[in-house]
């Protein structure tokens, strides 16, 4: 299958289980090239697991992932990953520029050092997230929003056609949220594919083209207007959905 005609990401029958307890059941997902997709669902629904399993960071019991039509093992270099910032030890002795430069390590071999070229790319990425002035700041002194932007810059520097972000908007301040959204917009304009685990239902219609509703299995996936309905939200989150239903109704109606 030619690369151009294949969707950016295809997940087929992906199942992940811990001691025979399924965390993800038989997930099928197609992410078209250039799409900006949100993954939403309740806690424990497997959202982070989906991203990590798709990236090969945790083993899957069944299923496969294809990147631009090629098996994942060949296509892994096309995906850049932004983990949850809480999963990192921020007291590490290094500065912002250094962390972003780590994003270039994938393209360097085993024994090569990052040079001026790599650092310039890192600087450019920092400018994009409005952190250019913080190059030399030790990361232990960063606020939550700044940490998030640094991780985003680290992924940007990889210049991959696909980005996967795990809860990037969680607990960040307004300027950071604006910066991230600006980056997402730019990426979308450039035809890049972005998949985001997102926790805030209210902003889904505003920030994303399509959405995957996930609760251990895929409830539904597709363009926001079609899929982000009250019915689907109820199936995903269970029970009465209240305010969210109004948003969803407004979205699908409008």
């Amino acid at each position: 299958m030619a690369r151009e005609s294949s969707p950016a990401l295809e997940v087929e029958d992906l199942t992940v289980a811990y001691s025979e307890q399924p965390v993800l059941w038989d997930i099928d997902l197609v992410v078209p090239t250039g799409d900006t997709m949100a993954i939403v669902g309740p806690n424990g629904a497997g959202k982070s697991t989906l991203i990590k399993a798709a990236m090969g960071l945790i083993p899957a019991v069944a299923g496969e992932v294809r990147v631009f039509g090629r098996p994942f093992a060949k296509g892994r270099g096309e995906i850049a990953y932004v983990p949850q910032r809480a999963s990192l030890e921020w007291d590490f002795p290094t500065d912002v520029l250094d962390v972003v430069t780590m994003g270039t390590y994938g393209s360097l071999g085993w024994f090569r050092r990052p040079g001026a070229g790599e650092r310039d790319r890192a600087r450019a990425a920092l400018e994009e997230v409005a952190m250019g002035a913080f190059e030399r700041r030790p990361i232990a002194q960063l606020s939550g929003g700044q940490q998030q932007r640094v991780l985003l810059a680290r992924a940007l520097v990889q210049q991959a056609p696909i980005l996967m972000l795990d809860e990037p908007f969680q607990g960040v301040d307004a300027p950071t949220e604006r910066a991230i959204v600006a980056v997402l917009d730019r990426l979308s304009d450039e035809g890049k594919t972005v998949v985001v685990v997102h926790h805030d239902l209210q902003t889904v219609p505003e920030y994303f083209d399509s959405v995957l509703l996930l609760n251990v299995r895929a409830i539904d996936a597709g363009p926001v207007a079609e899929v982000f309905t009250e019915e689907n939200l109820r199936l995903t989150f269970g029970g009465r959905v209240g305010v969210l239903a109004q948003i969803a109704a407004a979205e699908s109606g409008g």
Binding site: K52, M55, G56, L57, R76, I79, A80, Y81, P83, S87, L88, E89, F92, T94, V99, M102, Y105, G106, R154
Partner: peptide, 9 residues
């Protein structure tokens, strides 16, 4: 610093 990121690379 970030072994998960290392894996992803």
């Amino acid at each position: 610093f970030d072994s998960e990121f290392a894996s992803s690379l």
